[in-house]
Design a protein around this nucleic acid. Sequence first.
RNA 1: GCGGCUAUAGUUCAGGGGUUAGAACGCGGGUCUGUGGCACCCGAUGUCGAGGGUUCAAAUCCCUCUAGCCGCCCCA
Length: 435
Amino acid sequence: MATLKAPRGTRDLLPPDTALWNHIDSVARSVFARYGFGEIRTPIFEATELFARGVGEETDIVSKEMFTWEDRARAASEKSQSLTLRPENTAGVVRAYIEHKLGETGQLQKLYYIGPQFRRERPQKGRYRQFFQIGAEVIGPSSSGSESPVRDAEIVEMLATFLDELGVKDWKLMINSVGSSTDRPRYLTALRDALAPIKDKMSPDNQRRAETNPLRVLDSKEEADQELINGLPKIADYLDASSKSHFEQVLAALDACGVPYTVNPRLVRGLDYYTRTTFEFVTETGLGTQNALLGGGRYDGLSEIIGGPKAPGIGFAIGEDRLVLTLQAQAEAEAAAGNAAPEKKMDTYIAPMGEGQNAAALKLARNLRRAGLTVEIGDGSFRLKKSFEAADRVARTILILGEDEVASGTATVKTFATGEQVKVAFTELQDKLRA
RNA sequence: GCGGCUAUAGUUCAGGGGUUAGAACGCGGGUCUGUGGCACCCGAUGUCGAGGGUUCAAAUCCCUCUAGCCGCCCCA
């Protein structure tokens, strides 16, 4: 029988990699808390309809990438229901916002989430069928200030701080405004009109896009079409006064904070719900073509689309898998340059000399561990040479525990880096071993 | 979903129809009975991704499948 493997596009995360994941999570929680965000946990599956309406029936995500199944009725009185593994988390958060009437509090809601998302795509580096997103949403009634350009700038500035605290070195921020729900249709009409006479001169891909999703022509990488694309109408020229002023205020706030950005008039996003401010942080390190580390934007009409009250909002989703790849690639580059980060080792490794010392060793380990030290423990059957080798791999020091030591209540402690070896009373061990 | 490349030891990889499949690192043991890192010696690595076919003979050639990677599509 063939051995069982993790399904296509999924993977196991193992130590030591999981330490990096945990670090990213904890930096995110720490940064987000300082900006007043609280954690929300929504279900991993939702009614299919939520994504069809929220994300958009015509998007690739909904039309061909969802894991959907029919949950059968259990009784004649019950209906079966179409359920879907969440392909993103914003729709779920907005659904929860509506369901729990968070808008009735009148308060601005600042919510973040960390968790797996699912899309049935062809796997590639930085693209998995189960992938992890760290995201946040700011949402509330207009009276709570949810539409203010300050919110947009705050979110973007928070992301810059997050990436800086994590140590991501070469991120670039791309930002654009895709206009309000009234600007966008006007622009789309103009874009279609402009494409109609020239699209035959474009690549087959772009001819198809011109028909199905004209916005996507804008971020085409097709070299030969660039000149034609540059001549197309710009969304910026179709923003109404309020959208234009909103965007200008966002940029002014970023300028004031010193957050560097590039206005990219061709930045469009694939989810239908985005309005006005959209942004993307990209990096060249560690990612192939999937160079977007995170993306986000404003979604002023989403709540109403899925049956809720008016609740403008803005949010983002970080591709945690991609962040991990980027940080690992950065660490590798550092190591290659001779700047390897020092290994984090445990405080000590207890080497019992002879099986008679095993119980005493475990008792000593218990006390030290309860005092907050990181302690590994060997086995009395090991030869001392083996204990040293095992200890040197995982710990800064080795603590030798033989009959003499147990009898006298002292341990022999050797520090690998210096070669220093001393006898230490059990009672003084925790001070001696603390890094 | 489309096109291409790849799959051999724990890891990184070499090999290329012919007896028993290799290297390095790592791992176990020894030189060395309570003092490691270095050195030397010995040892085990394995359904050669899975299944089928061609052949006297397949890890090697062919087909199918599975998975990964690259590009496209799309996105985080």
